[in-house]
Nucleic acid binder design. Structure first.
Lengths: 194, 194
DNA sequence: ACCATAGGAATGAATATTCATTCCGTTTTA
DNA sequence: TAAAACGGAATGAATATTCATTCCTATGGT
């Protein structure tokens, strides 16, 4: 155990922020090496090639996102409580890992993702699908296709966090609370409408 | 005027779909030439270089989007009616120009956009800012920062249209109506909450 | 024949990847 | 215990590939 980051960790961190910032194709391997303060060749000691690196990164982020969202999930809570839990999980993950969240969002359909990466992302989505299905069944969530519901909440959330990441917005607990409410209102059934 | 697309138009169309599909850095000039069925050199007869091409494309799309959203805007209508108008404009633009919408969304912060492109996008955003401000003032729209409100609606909308674009979803008028309602509920003030 | 337009091979710069060498900590030997 | 030998991690210059851009030839319209 070192007090300082291992070479591998430095590479991972540098690559993540560059991929998030400039995209996969806009990031060169020497750029990553520079930022990580290692030799170019060192990257190839840890990853077979650039594609293997981006896939390792992607899977790692998805796994961590999965863990955060599912940890302490209130299985027996209400649909509303579960929504809040998931939303807070997203916030927590995005704050701890500001590049990781954006990276996953912008790369989840990328052509260079291998089957394993795609599968890991699909599993994450399955969890949200199942949630949406339960919510609809209980009459709490609007009867739209689960894909659409997920797209609405994730789309809104990621765009907001993109602003935060870009420094164009500073998040406050109150603002996050309001955004959560806003997202809930977007997908929930309203009892009484004028 | 030809019955068939001009060379320039073929280049523009090919470039647009490739940039939307693979991103700027992931698209090569010969790739564009191939898809447009022109020689590589021909592209340089119409555009100074790759960067000029992407900027011309961006500005053109933003302009068309602007036109669609602002055409017949109900200046004296209610905030709700104006929202509907804008939303329908977005739908119309996205349907007529499925790549263009996604292209603008994914490239609006790109490092290779020139000042003119940035300015054209800023003007478009100003329009939405002004709309949000009016809505808040009238007590119809939630009192959040305009940036956040815009991010919520645009984020939700673009993610849904990304699904449609990818063929993972087929849009119907009823579905679009529901999504419009969903987005409105996300940003509007609700008179009575339980 | 002349000019404008188009084409695509040629060019040089940029990029991913490799590899011979250096460096450094550990083990072996005297 | 000190010196020598070793092994694997790290390096960055060298190589092979890909790319944007140029340039010269070909084509077709007038």
């Amino acid at each position: 155990m070192e007090a300082t980051l291992s070479k591998r960790d430095k590479i991972v961190e540098a690559a993540l922020s560059l991929f998030a910032e400039r995209g996969y194709d806009g990031t060169t391997v020497p750029m990553i090496a520079d930022k990580a303060e290692v030799g170019t060749g060192t990257i190839y000691r840890y990853f077979e090639n650039k594609e293997a690196l981006v896939n390792a990164l992607f899977q790692d982020c998805v796994k961590r996102f999965n863990d955060v969202v599912k940890r302490d999930f209130p299985d027996s809570g209400s649909v509303r409580e579960q929504f809040q839990h998931v939303f807070h999980g997203m916030v927590r993950f995005a704050k701890e890992n500001i590049h990781g969240f954006y990276f996953v969002d912008t790369h989840s359909n990328a052509r260079y993702l291998d089957p394993e990466s795609r599968e890991s992302f699909r599993q994450l989505m399955d969890f949200f699908h199942a949630y949406a299905a339960r919510g609809i069944q209980q009459g709490m969530i609007r009867p739209l296709q689960a894909d659409v519901l997920i797209a609405i909440v994730f789309g809104a959330f990621t765009k907001v966090f993109t602003l935060i990441r870009a420094g164009k917005l500073t998040e406050t607990p109150e603002m996050l609370r309001q955004i959560e409410e806003s997202c809930w209102d977007a997908v929930s059934v309203h009892a009484n409408k004028e």
